[in-house]
Nucleic acid binder design. Structure first.
Lengths: 155, 155
DNA sequence: CAGATATATTTGCGCTTACAATCATTGAGA
DNA sequence: TCTCAATGATTGTAAGCGCAAATATATCTG
């Protein structure tokens, strides 16, 4: 630790970050509304579409999403009703449920991806210089690595 | 717009960001638990403590927090019950309610601030070089400025 | 093999939040 | 002044999510 307080520069960086991330999320979410998808729905479809056979066990999917198991159950309800995802029971282990993206879901994702990419560009990437984009990645990889190790002293 | 797709570098930056911010928020939130405060509660106390007379109209406070009016009403309920915030009716305009931080609230904030600052340092600032801290501020000011202007073409 | 333990998922419940409706008060125009 | 739109706050309602409990199945242990 460097000091018990934040320098002016540190404070400015922290405040800029804290005040902006919610607005950014809201903007990205708003741009998905025309596709009838929430950001959370979109993430489900992306992860499933990138998975083998387009499917994943519920528990693996909830880990990927950083969502609780119950949260995932309810999130899937909507996607199943929209016919974007199907639930199929595991054959070898009958406890497990697989969430699998349907062809409807793949089509919906294909329609949404260009707008979403454009949205990420518009609100984030294109606001930055190439050097800043690189810095952004470096910064959050460093922060993410730190959070992973979670080196709390006491616990 | 530069391109309809993301370059590898852009994708890496975006994914690092997207995967990390929720973890960071969770870590900061967890470090406030011993103080019996959520991050949202903490923000309320900070904003009120920095305001004239330690109080703010509900609507101004909800704007500062980026919270809906109804959300603020319910959030204050908890802080009022904890005696950290008091509601007082406006004198000139009897529609307005002021949320004002109590001395209990100021004490609670004083107790929490050092831990929170340490938390921000541990999880964010100290993971970065000074140059990265500066870059972080520049990046999110640029992004925030862009979101403010919201230059959507169609609407 | 039986019983205990672990794992995968869903359901019950409560918390937080936003949107829409409601109520109270203010300010502006006829 | 009286009316009506605008403003500030709260309440009703619903959606999203996590925790704990419940359920079903699998695995380990004696």
């Amino acid at each position: 630790m460097t000091s018990g307080r934040l320098t002016a520069t540190e404070m400015r960086a922290w405040r800029a970050y804290a005040e902006t991330i919610d607005h950014l999320r809201a903007a990205l979410e708003a741009d998905l509304v025309p596709h009838g998808l929430s950001l959370g729905d979109y993430e489900v479809l992306v992860i499933l579409s990138e998975s083998v056979d387009g499917r994943l066990r519920m528990c693996d999917l909830s880990n990927e999403l950083g969502l609780s198991p119950s949260g995932l159950t309810r999130r899937l309800d909507g996607l199943v009703k929209a016919d974007y995802v199907a639930r199929t029971q595991g054959t070898s282990d009958r406890r497990v449920m697989y969430a699998s993206i349907t062809s409807e879901g793949r089509h919906a994702l294909q329609r949404a991806v260009p707008d979403h990419v454009r949205s990420v560009r518009t609100h984030l990437i294109d606001r930055l210089t190439p050097a800043q984009v690189t810095a952004l990645g470096d910064i959050f990889r460093a922060v993410g690595d730190g959070l992973g190790r979670q080196s709390r002293s006491g616990t």
